[in-house]
Design a binder for these strands. Structure first.
Lengths: 169, 169
DNA sequence: GTCTATAGTGGGATAGAC
DNA sequence: GTCTATCCCACTATAGAC
């Protein structure tokens, strides 16, 4: 199993604090210094993880709109994307956080990947401004939920519903 | 100058990585160990910083709606809050990030502070669900801007405008 | 309240031999 | 590609004398 796959597994299992060059090496059955023959360093590793996240979450977004009927409106598309976005993030919380927290290492990412992942939303929203507003809403809902910032009794389904409805008009 | 004020100054000047027990002590003219006679530890310190952030940003929110005319509608209130929210965060980026990233240490915060800070938004939005959606949008826009996640050419004013308009209907 | 000294932990990264 | 041996860094925290 190569380094990135192992790192992914550790990240999802132990969280970001558990992901160290040492822990990756240990899981691979080698010593930490040997890892540097496989990977440049930690920055490179994180960029590879982010790229993987973009590829997989982007796929989930493309799939979400692909299954809609041709006559589905903006409301249906944004709702489908919102649900898929939230579901993906809740299923991969640590990876989501890694990929969306802090600056994007754009120089280290494959050209076009970021745009491809955003494509379904831009199409569904109808304009760049609306897409950015919708993304901000979705990311805000998601990260606040992951961080446990909403009160325990909060009805998050209702908040998503309310926001998606408003933003699709 | 006591510890919290010094910590605040270092945080805003050098960012979170520059904020260590050593740096705080140095700035106060004492050694790191002596700091523990003033403050329990780093968790306590961060909770105090977060409380300060809630107090000051909450004040900005209360002020933003207080200056509205009595006949102002929901749209005007949400717009004023949105602008004040963004302005406050951009003026205190490191503190904003500290106070909104990760779980809230609710046990360490003064009772009622969180609710008080949220009050203007809940009132302006008209319901808890709408308030949560609006907060998610505002936080999403803000943190994505702070993290440089939007493309450089993005028109963030337009995105704010678009989102606030949609969410105030 | 302050100091010196130190414990204990963890991290990323490199040199050079095999 | 792998190893051993290190280096460097940084941090929180405590003990005990003054």
């Amino acid at each position: 199993m190569e380094a990135v796959a192992v790192a992914l597994q550790i990240l999802e299992r132990d969280g970001p604090d558990g992901l160290t060059m040492r822990s990756i090496a240990a899981e691979m059955g080698i010593r930490a210094p040997s890892l540097y023959k496989h990977i440049e360093g930690k920055e490179e590793l994180e960029a590879l993880l982010i790229a993987d996240s973009l590829r997989r979450s982007g796929k989930a977004m493309h799939d979400a709109v692909a299954s809609l009927s041709a006559r589905a409106g903006r409301r249906a598309a944004l709702t489908a994307l919102g649900h898929a976005y939230r579901a993906w993030a809740l299923a991969h919380p640590h990876l989501y956080r890694l990929a969306t927290g802090g600056p994007l290492p754009r120089e280290r990412l494959p050209t076009g990947l970021e745009a491809w992942a955003a494509e379904p939303l831009v199409r569904a929203a109808g304009s760049q401004e609306r897409a950015r507003a919708a993304w901000a809403f979705a990311h805000g809902m998601t990260i606040l939920e992951l961080d446990g910032r909403f009160p325990p009794e909060a009805d998050l389904n209702a908040a998503w519903e309310s926001g998606l409805q408003a933003l699709s008009r």
